[in-house]
Amino acid sequence: MKHFTANVTVTLRSSILDVQGKTVEHALHSLHMPALSDVRIGKHIQLTVTAPDADTAREEVDDACKKLLTNPVMEDYSIYLTEVVAAEKA
């Protein structure tokens, strides 16, 4: 079995007004950074997955996102998976 670190990024769906993101965007503009826009604020969930391969690991995390970690009515998510090599783990 292999170990993977999964980083899940959860943001409000693009159709939903992200009030925090908008407020931060206004603040950035008032700091004279007009090049920055479309600020979205979300949350970050990190977890370890034990699975035979990366595809299975991703499926496990995807299942967790659908069942509990996110609410598809209001949130989008993306999964970033990296394998934890043995030396790193020890």
Partner: peptide, 8 residues
């Protein structure tokens, strides 16, 4: 769904 109040 019920999300964060508009005025936070």
């Amino acid at each position: 769904a019920l999300i964060r109040n508009e005025n936070l």
